[in-house]
Computed example of a mutant assay.
Amino acid sequence: MTQTRALIEEATKKSGLVWVRGTGAAARALWHVWHEGALHLVGDGPGEQPLTGLGLADGSTATVTVRSKDKGGRLVEWTARVSELAPDSEAWAAAVADLKGKRLNAPDADRIEERWARECRVLRLEPSGDTAELPDGSLAATPVVTAATTREPVPAGLPKLLARGRKAARKAGKR
C-alpha cells in the first residue's frame, strides 16, 4: 500500500463525516463507513441522508474531502470511482452490515436492512488516484436555501427554571 493510499484510508476511517462532491454539484457533508478499501454511503430513502443532486451515479467520479476528527480541518482530498451496490449482492450485504452499526437513531433498527434494500441507495466510493493538493483559502459557500429558520430568543423564565433544576439536583446528591 502506498503512503498516499494509507493516508486516505486512515484519515477516512477516523473521520465520522466527509464532504463529497459529485459531477457539477456542491459538496455535501455525509456520514459513512470505510469497508474493504472504499468509502460506503447509504441514502436517498425516507429519513436517510440525501444523495440526490450530488451527481453520484454508477460509473461516475466524485471528490471526497476528509476532515480531522478532533479539529474539523481538512486533512486530505481524493478522487473516487462511484459504484452503486445491488441489494442482492454479497458486497451490498457486507457493506450494509458495517453501515447499520454506524447509523444512529434509526427508527426501525430491527428492519433497517430490508428498508435500505427497498428504498435506499448504497454507494461505494473507491479511491482512484492520488490526493489533491488542498487549497490555502476558505471553501465557504452560500448556504442552501431551506425552509428552516433560526430559533426564537430564549424565554425570559428559562434561566430561573434551569437554576431551580440544578438546585434540586444538588439537594438530591447530598442525601
Rank of each mutant, 00 (worst) to 15 (best):
Q3C: 01
Q3R: 15
T4P: 02
T4R: 10
R5W: 04
E10M: 09
A11Q: 01
T12D: 00
K13E: 08
G16T: 11
W19K: 07
W19E: 07
R21P: 02
R21I: 06
R21A: 15
G24N: 13
G24D: 14
G24A: 12
A25N: 07
A26Q: 13
A26P: 09
R28K: 14
A29Q: 08
L30C: 01
W31S: 10
H32Q: 12
H35Q: 15
L39F: 09
H40V: 11
G43K: 04
P46H: 06
P46Q: 07
Q49F: 03
L51H: 03
G53H: 05
G59N: 01
T63S: 10
T65L: 09
V66R: 00
R67D: 06
S68I: 13
D70L: 11
K71R: 15
K71W: 11
G72H: 13
R74N: 09
L75Q: 11
L75E: 12
E77Y: 06
R81T: 11
R81V: 09
S83H: 10
L85V: 06
L85Q: 05
A86W: 04
P87G: 11
P87I: 13
P87Q: 10
S89H: 13
A91W: 00
W92L: 06
D98I: 08
L99E: 03
K100F: 02
G101V: 03
R103A: 15
N105R: 15
A109L: 06
D110S: 14
D110F: 03
I112G: 05
E113N: 02
E114T: 08
R115G: 04
W116Q: 05
A117F: 02
R118C: 01
R118F: 03
E119A: 07
R121P: 05
D130M: 10
D130N: 13
T131K: 10
A132C: 14
A132H: 15
L134A: 05
P135Y: 13
L139P: 03
T142R: 05
T142H: 00
T142E: 08
V144Q: 04
A147W: 08
T149E: 07
E152H: 15
V154N: 01
P155L: 14
G157E: 15
L158D: 09
K160L: 03
L162V: 11
A163L: 12
R164P: 02
R166M: 09
R166F: 06
A168L: 15
R170H: 10
A172H: 07
K174P: 06
